[in-house]
């Protein structure tokens, strides 16, 4: 399913998935502000509220609860995801609402997930931003992994960093499980585990290099799979100079630990205007153009929209 989706994704809109393990770190606010910021520059953006069960992007955009939402699509009351797209108060920005999704929707089955993904990649837009829910459930991980880039949001707090690391580990191993041919890869991993001491297998990176030694083909398959795992990071609510380093430091540690590249897209400062914009039901980018948060969000939006950004 995911492989098929990736082929489609190569020609469709650029898809970004915003996740990150912990609730309340600002995923939805960042999604809304990034989308609004991009739309203002003339880029056609669809925001998909994939926080199934906890959707509220419509509120952040100052819209009434949309009449049609994702659950209508799942229940086949509408045939196309494009029919769920609702215009927002911001030109060039549409919303696919997840509001009022049925309870069982919070955990869509395999077929439903595949259908959502296929339709997302067929949307007539330049960029699609998926706002994922909190947690590391498989469906969140899958949406995260199929995006052009999964974007992790953390705040400089131990609990948030903890959840982010848990999320990254879960996503990474889910990704490695897809390495082909599956039987051969699994056999090589088994052989490594049986012969290596704990000390030799400290990190996923160690595992890959040991597998490489016993079975170069299986090792190469793992490397290939791992090399396409390139999540990005946004640090939200930075207050001190020390917080400015967090993104870069997490990137360095991820490189050591997983052997992957975790690029920091930007560090967004704590800004009371953001809180105010939420109660005013409009993205801060629409209301407070001088806000430091808005300036930082624009920097991230520019990077996402840059034509140089290729599929890793």
């Amino acid at each position: 399913m995911i492989e098929e989706f990736e082929t489609l994704a190569a020609t469709g809109p650029r898809i970004w998935a915003i996740g990150g393990g912990k609730g309340g770190v600002g995923k939805s606010v960042i999604a809304a502000n990034l989308a609004a910021s991009m739309a203002r520059t003339g880029i056609r953006v669809v925001l998909v509220d994939a926080d199934l069960g906890g959707a509220n992007l419509h509120t952040l955009l100052g819209m009434p609860t949309p009449r049609i939402n994702l659950s209508d699509f799942i229940a086949r009351r509408v045939t196309s995801l494009a029919d769920v797209m609702a215009p927002t108060p911001i030109e060039n920005l549409w919303l696919v609402s997840g509001a009022h999704a049925l309870l069982e929707m919070a955990n869509p089955n395999f077929g439903q997930k595949g259908k959502i993904l296929r339709h997302i990649s067929a949307l007539d837009a330049d960029h699609v931003i998926l706002d994922l829910g909190a947690g590391s459930a498989f469906n969140v991980l899958d949406f995260f992994l199929v995006a052009r880039r999964g974007i992790l949001v953390v705040v400089p707090e131990a609990t948030s960093v903890e959840n982010a690391h848990h999320f990254l580990k879960a996503a990474f191993f889910r990704k490695l499980k897809r390495a082909q041919p599956r039987r051969q890869v699994r056999a090589a991993i088994g052989q490594v585990m049986a012969n290596a001491s704990q000390r030799d297998l400290r990190t996923p990176r160690d595992l890959i290099s040991k597998v490489m030694a016993v079975d170069p083909d299986a090792g190469a398959a793992l490397v290939a799979e791992a090399s396409t795992f390139n999540p990005s990071l946004i640090v939200n609510r930075a207050e001190h100079a020390e917080h400015q380093r967090l993104g870069e430091d997490m990137g360095a540690a991820c490189r050591d630990y997983f052997g992957i590249r975790l690029e920091c897209l930007g560090t967004l400062p704590t800004d009371r205007l953001v809180v105010r914009s939420v109660s005013q039901r409009s993205p801060a980018t629409e209301l407070y153009t001088q806000s430091p948060f808005v300036a930082a969000v624009r920097g991230v939006a520019e990077r996402l929209a840059s034509p140089q950004w290729r599929i890793a």
Partner: peptide, 20 residues
Amino acid sequence: LYDKGSLATYTLLEDDERTT
């Protein structure tokens, strides 16, 4: 970065992994 009190590597590593 790999100090016990480091925020960026919090829970990424077990104590013995950190030592290594």
